[in-house]
């Protein structure tokens, strides 16, 4: 059966209310088109996981899709604050948002444990910070060999991981390159994987620094040209920095954000 579906079909079949969803892409290849589809379908009560919530989760949070956020840095990169995220944490609008907050190393190692089939990963970190007392899924551990105090972070296995890649081939293998962040670990940690791609090609060109995800771990592929905009897709288009700056004004007030949802056709 073909894994190629429309984005609408892929989200409808594989993402459900209450699921834990990871949408990764570290400033590059952020799966915005898939997030817009989730808003359009009115999914709710999601646990959203992402190292950098970025504009993509600011939108999902503001649209009321999320009940919990697992993250490690919640700003508008290079611009400032995420206003919808702040409004949810500070004022509970549009609904209260539970948070589970990590460091980048902590959250990336939660994915790594999930991808490698272990119950936890070990890092040197969190000790001496106040994070360790407010964050679940982090615990102090003693090294059985040296007696050192280290930190264990629990495995993370999302119901669905959604990523955006430059290319799929006709067999449904996936190729992404440039800054590939945590996508491979997030995909391999998940029960189901949805990938949106810029285009389908006959064969991948040999490239240094490319990451290939084999078809057999992918649940569905949707072709979504410009699907990472306003972030960028290396060798396809650059970051729409004006859109990142403009987001600050759009997201500032609840009214302007809701008007934006309607104007983008994400809400009637």
């Amino acid at each position: 059966m073909s894994k190629f579906k429309s984005l609408e079909e892929a989200i409808k079949e594989l993402v459900h209310d209450g699921d834990t969803i990871a949408m990764e892409g570290f400033t590059h290849l952020i799966p915005f088109a898939a997030a817009n589809e989730i808003i359009r379908q009115g999914l709710s009560d999601l646990t959203l996981v992402r190292m950098t919530p970025d504009l993509i989760y600011d939108r999902l949070i503001g649209a009321g899709c999320a009940s919990k956020l697992v993250f490690s840095w919640g700003g508008n990169p290079g611009v400032g604050s995420l206003n919808r995220f702040r409004d949810a944490v500070q004022n509970g609008w549009p609904k209260p948002l539970e948070i589970e907050e990590h460091t980048h190393a902590g959250l990336s190692n939660r994915y790594l444990a999930g991808a490698t089939g272990l119950p936890f990963a070990v890092i040197r970190g969190y000790q001496g910070t106040d994070l360790i007392s407010v964050t679940n899924n982090v615990a102090e551990i003693t090294c059985p060999f040296t007696g050192e105090r280290l930190t264990a972070v629990a495995a993370l296995n999302p119901d669905v991981t959604i990523i955006h890649a430059q290319q799929a081939d006709r067999e449904g293998n996936i190729c992404l390159w440039g800054i590939t962040g945590i996508q491979k670990e997030a995909a391999l940690a998940a029960k189901k994987v949805i990938v949106t791609v810029e285009e389908v090609v006959d064969a991948f060109a040999p490239r240094s620094n490319s990451t290939v995800i084999p078809s057999f771990v992918v649940s569905a592929i949707a072709i979504a040209p410009h699907g990472a905009s306003p972030s960028y897709a290396l060798d396809y288009y650059i970051r729409d920095n004006d859109a990142y700056i403009a987001w600050n004004a759009i997201s500032k007030e609840r009214e302007s954000f809701e008007a934006w949802l309607v104007s983008e056709g994400l809400r009637k």
């Binding site: 290079g78 440039g178 590939t180």
Partner: peptide
Amino acid sequence: LPLSIGDGELAQTALTVVSIPEIFNYWLQ
């Protein structure tokens, strides 16, 4: 000046680009 921490300019002018777990676990830690 890079626009973000993951600006394409940084990837294209780098000696090598590694994954997030690698940058934290192999290089920083």
